[in-house]
Structure formats: structure tokens, C-alpha cells
Design a protein around this nucleic acid. Structure first.
Length: 185
DNA sequence: AGGAAGATCTACT
DNA sequence: GTAGATCTTCCTA
């Protein structure tokens, strides 16, 4: 059961925290991974967000995937908040559950922990590119969707964002404490 | 048409 | 830990 659309219709930081422990599913290849690290991005008031540069990003509809290219890497975002806010969540790292062989083949690395421990690594392992831009992650018939994971017991750690030129003074990065697949500690 | 920038990755010291 | 590579989009001439 994918998470409902209204799940994303909240504050970005709230959604980011709720998303930890949830599963990303790519139906066509049977890939499943657990989300272990996220970052929240706000549109207009956020100096790090590119939403302020171009208006193309303002999809307005929560629960849609937004694919963004930087440094030759695709980054996978999910739009949150009601229309016009242009804010969203970046998936920074996941833990592979199913379809590991496919990911390994695509990534060409032998270290399991290097498979998906980074935004660009995750998209490459899942074979995500621009053609996935705008898909609805709350619909089961989408090529990729998010569903609720088991009620795992874990602690959420908050910290500053990574690699951002100009960060906001508040912590907007969230990850599962002690998880080996987090990109940085 | 050209160039700069950017939420990264990898390899090497 | 740090430098260099790499690629697409957007901005300016």
C-alpha cells in the first residue's frame, strides 16, 4: 500500500522525518530499498533551493517526483506542501532490500555500503533519469512509488545539510541513527 | 552560441 | 581530506 497523497501535504521537514524507514519500490525490476536519509528543501525562502531560480519546479502538486540534475548526477525529490510552495524532500540515501544484483551490476562496485549511500548513487542504482520527472509516488501504478515500511525501532538524528553552498541555520537533514547506509555521519 | 554553476562521485595522496 | 572530472540547465551576448 503506497502512502496516500495527503501524506505529502504537510511541512517538508515533517514529511522528511516520516519518510525515514519507508520503502521505495521500482515495480518493473522488483527493486525495493529502505529510506535511511532525507533532506528537506524549501522553495522561495531557501537559498540552497533552485526553485527560486526557475519557475519550472513549481509543480504545485504534492506527492510527485522531481528529478534534478547536478554535477552529472540525478537527484530524486518528492514534492511536499500545498500548491505553490515549491518545497520538497531529497532522498539522500537508501538501504537495498531487494534487487541487489541489479543495483550492483548498474553501479559496478563491490562494496555493498557504497551501493546507495548518496543521492546520485541511489538514482543510478535504481536506473532513475529525467523520464521519471513528475511521476506520482502515491500511486501504485506508477513506475516508482513509496510505501510504508515496518514499524522499525530507530532514532532520528537531525543535522545540517551536506554539500549545500548556503545552508539555512536550522537542521533540515534527517537520518536513521547507526544505519550503515547513511552517506555521512 | 557560449559559458558558468551546481543539493556529487571517485580516486588518489 | 582534497582535487579533478563530469553533465545538464539556465543565463547572457
Amino acid at each position: 500500500m503506497p502512502l496516500p497523497k495527503k501524506f505529502y501535504n504537510r511541512d517538508a521537514a515533517e514529511v522528511a522525518k516520516s519518510l525515514l524507514g519507508c520503502l521505495v519500490v521500482k515495480k518493473s525490476e522488483g527493486l525495493v530499498a529502505k529510506i535511511v536519509e532525507t533532506e528537506a528543501y524549501y522553495g522561495l525562502s531557501d537559498p540552497a533551493s533552485r526553485a527560486r531560480k526557475g519557475a519550472k519546479i513549481m509543480w504545485g502538486e504534492p506527492g510527485r517526483a522531481f528529478i534534478y540534475m547536478v554535477h552529472g548526477n540525478w537527484l530524486f525529490n518528492i514534492i511536499t506542501m500545498p500548491k505553490g510552495e515549491a518545497s520538497g524532500i531529497l532522498i539522500r540515501a537508501v538501504e537495498p532490500i531487494r534487487g541487489i544484483e541489479i543495483m550492483e551490476k548498474r553501479r559496478k562496485v563491490k562494496n555493498l555500503y557504497a551501493l546507495t549511500s548518496g543521492p546520485g548513487k541511489f538514482t543510478k542504482a535504481f536506473g532513475i533519469d529525467k523520464s521519471y520527472n513528475g511521476i506520482k509516488v502515491y500511486r501504485k501504478d506508477s513506475p516508482i512509488y513509496i510505501e510504508k515500511g515496518k514499524e522499525d525501532d530507530f532514532e532520528i538524528v537531525e543535522s545540517h545539510r551536506i554539500g549545500v553552498k548556503e545552508d539555512l541555520p536550522i537542521p533540515l537533514r534527517f537520518y536513521i541513527k547507526g544505519n550503515k547506509f547513511v552517506s555521512r555521519f
